[in-house]
Protein backbone atom coordinates (compact mmCIF):
# COMPACT_ATOMS: atom_id res chain seq x y z
CA UNK A 1 0.00 0.00 0.00
CA UNK A 2 0.90 3.53 -0.59
CA UNK A 3 1.39 5.53 2.58
CA UNK A 4 1.65 9.25 2.81
CA UNK A 5 4.92 10.36 4.26
CA UNK A 6 4.51 11.86 7.71
CA UNK A 7 5.59 15.38 7.09
CA UNK A 8 4.31 18.75 8.21
CA UNK A 9 1.36 19.60 6.05
CA UNK A 10 2.82 22.78 4.60
CA UNK A 11 5.71 20.87 3.13
CA UNK A 12 3.57 18.57 1.02
CA UNK A 13 3.10 19.54 -2.57
CA UNK A 14 1.03 17.47 -4.96
CA UNK A 15 2.38 17.27 -8.45
CA UNK A 16 1.69 15.31 -11.58
CA UNK A 17 4.77 13.28 -12.45
CA UNK A 18 4.65 11.01 -15.55
CA UNK A 19 0.87 10.87 -15.38
CA UNK A 20 0.75 9.97 -11.68
CA UNK A 21 -0.23 12.14 -8.78
CA UNK A 22 2.75 12.17 -6.49
CA UNK A 23 3.54 13.80 -3.20
CA UNK A 24 6.78 15.68 -3.14
CA UNK A 25 8.35 17.57 -0.33
CA UNK A 26 9.69 20.99 -1.02
CA UNK A 27 12.56 22.50 0.83
CA UNK A 28 11.25 25.99 1.17
CA UNK A 29 13.66 28.82 1.73
CA UNK A 30 13.24 30.39 5.13
CA UNK A 31 13.95 34.05 5.48
CA UNK A 32 13.36 35.64 8.84
CA UNK A 33 15.79 38.51 8.45
CA UNK A 34 13.65 41.56 9.06
CA UNK A 35 16.16 43.75 7.26
CA UNK A 36 15.62 41.93 3.97
CA UNK A 37 11.88 41.30 4.26
CA UNK A 38 9.77 44.10 2.85
CA UNK A 39 6.37 44.56 1.33
CA UNK A 40 6.19 44.05 -2.42
CA UNK A 41 5.89 47.32 -4.35
CA UNK A 42 2.18 46.89 -5.20
CA UNK A 43 1.45 46.62 -1.46
CA UNK A 44 3.40 49.82 -0.78
CA UNK A 45 1.55 51.58 -3.62
CA UNK A 46 -1.73 50.44 -2.08
CA UNK A 47 -0.99 51.54 1.50
CA UNK A 48 0.31 54.92 0.30
CA UNK A 49 -2.95 55.35 -1.62
CA UNK A 50 -4.79 54.98 1.68
CA UNK A 51 -2.46 57.25 3.62
CA UNK A 52 -2.62 59.97 0.96
CA UNK A 53 -6.42 59.67 0.93
CA UNK A 54 -6.64 60.17 4.70
CA UNK A 55 -4.26 63.17 4.50
CA UNK A 56 -6.47 64.73 1.79
CA UNK A 57 -9.55 64.17 3.95
CA UNK A 58 -7.89 65.81 6.97
CA UNK A 59 -6.90 68.81 4.84
CA UNK A 60 -10.46 69.44 3.58
CA UNK A 61 -11.30 72.16 6.16
CA UNK A 62 -8.10 73.98 5.25
CA UNK A 63 -8.90 73.79 1.53
CA UNK A 64 -12.45 75.07 2.04
CA UNK A 65 -11.12 77.89 4.17
CA UNK A 66 -8.64 78.82 1.42
CA UNK A 67 -11.37 78.68 -1.22
CA UNK A 68 -13.60 80.96 0.84
CA UNK A 69 -10.84 83.48 1.45
CA UNK A 70 -9.75 83.47 -2.20
CA UNK A 71 -13.26 84.32 -3.37
CA UNK A 72 -14.42 86.79 -0.72
CA UNK A 73 -12.49 89.96 -1.61
CA UNK A 74 -9.35 91.18 -3.42
CA UNK A 75 -7.76 92.03 -0.06
CA UNK A 76 -8.43 88.54 1.30
CA UNK A 77 -7.14 87.02 -1.94
CA UNK A 78 -3.88 88.93 -1.56
CA UNK A 79 -3.50 88.12 2.13
CA UNK A 80 -4.07 84.43 1.36
CA UNK A 81 -1.48 84.60 -1.42
CA UNK A 82 0.95 86.26 0.98
CA UNK A 83 0.25 83.67 3.67
CA UNK A 84 0.74 80.77 1.27
CA UNK A 85 4.00 82.14 -0.12
CA UNK A 86 5.92 81.85 3.16
CA UNK A 87 8.61 79.13 3.00
CA UNK A 88 6.91 76.90 5.58
CA UNK A 89 3.50 77.14 3.88
CA UNK A 90 5.08 76.34 0.54
CA UNK A 91 6.32 73.04 1.94
CA UNK A 92 2.88 72.29 3.36
CA UNK A 93 1.20 73.13 0.05
CA UNK A 94 3.73 70.97 -1.75
CA UNK A 95 2.99 68.09 0.63
CA UNK A 96 -0.72 68.51 0.03
CA UNK A 97 -0.24 68.69 -3.74
CA UNK A 98 1.96 65.59 -3.57
CA UNK A 99 -0.71 63.68 -1.66
CA UNK A 100 -3.23 64.71 -4.32
CA UNK A 101 -0.91 63.81 -7.21
CA UNK A 102 -0.10 60.43 -5.71
CA UNK A 103 -3.73 59.64 -4.90
CA UNK A 104 -4.69 60.68 -8.44
CA UNK A 105 -2.27 58.34 -10.22
CA UNK A 106 -2.71 55.43 -7.82
CA UNK A 107 -6.47 55.86 -8.26
CA UNK A 108 -6.14 55.75 -12.04
CA UNK A 109 -4.21 52.51 -11.60
CA UNK A 110 -7.20 51.14 -9.68
CA UNK A 111 -9.64 52.25 -12.36
CA UNK A 112 -7.51 50.61 -15.04
CA UNK A 113 -7.44 47.39 -13.01
CA UNK A 114 -11.24 47.48 -12.94
CA UNK A 115 -11.23 47.20 -16.73
CA UNK A 116 -8.57 44.46 -16.47
CA UNK A 117 -5.55 46.52 -17.38
CA UNK A 118 -2.63 45.49 -15.20
CA UNK A 119 -4.50 43.12 -12.92
CA UNK A 120 -2.05 40.26 -13.23
CA UNK A 121 1.07 39.71 -11.17
CA UNK A 122 3.59 40.89 -13.73
CA UNK A 123 1.59 43.79 -15.16
CA UNK A 124 0.49 44.76 -11.65
CA UNK A 125 4.09 45.09 -10.57
CA UNK A 126 4.86 47.14 -13.66
CA UNK A 127 1.91 49.46 -13.09
CA UNK A 128 2.94 49.88 -9.44
CA UNK A 129 6.39 50.91 -10.61
CA UNK A 130 4.92 53.27 -13.20
CA UNK A 131 2.59 54.82 -10.60
CA UNK A 132 5.61 55.57 -8.39
CA UNK A 133 7.73 56.99 -11.21
CA UNK A 134 4.98 59.15 -12.75
CA UNK A 135 3.87 60.46 -9.33
CA UNK A 136 7.40 61.43 -8.32
CA UNK A 137 8.04 63.18 -11.64
CA UNK A 138 4.79 65.15 -11.38
CA UNK A 139 5.50 65.98 -7.71
CA UNK A 140 8.86 67.42 -8.73
CA UNK A 141 7.15 69.41 -11.52
CA UNK A 142 4.64 70.73 -8.96
CA UNK A 143 7.56 71.76 -6.73
CA UNK A 144 9.23 73.57 -9.62
CA UNK A 145 5.95 75.39 -10.33
CA UNK A 146 5.58 76.36 -6.66
CA UNK A 147 9.07 77.77 -6.12
Amino acid sequence: MFALPTLPRYNRVFEIFKGNLVVVTKQRPKNLNLLTIHFPLPAIVSILHRISGVILFLMLPFMLWALELSLSSPADFDSLRQFLSSPLMKWIIWGLLSAFIYHFFAGIRHLLMDIHVGDELKSGRLSAKLTMIISIVVMILAGVWLW
Partner: peptide
Protein backbone atom coordinates in the same frame (compact mmCIF):
# COMPACT_ATOMS: atom_id res chain seq x y z
CA UNK B 1 -17.84 67.01 9.08
CA UNK B 2 -18.72 65.97 5.56
CA UNK B 3 -22.28 67.30 5.90
CA UNK B 4 -20.97 70.59 7.29
CA UNK B 5 -18.40 70.80 4.47
CA UNK B 6 -21.25 70.44 2.01
CA UNK B 7 -23.19 73.36 3.46
CA UNK B 8 -20.02 75.42 3.84
CA UNK B 9 -19.21 74.93 0.15
CA UNK B 10 -22.78 75.88 -0.80
CA UNK B 11 -22.38 79.12 1.13
CA UNK B 12 -18.95 79.80 -0.36
CA UNK B 13 -19.99 79.15 -3.96
CA UNK B 14 -23.26 81.05 -3.85
CA UNK B 15 -21.68 83.88 -1.89
CA UNK B 16 -19.60 84.79 -4.96
Amino acid sequence: SLVSFFFASLLILWGV
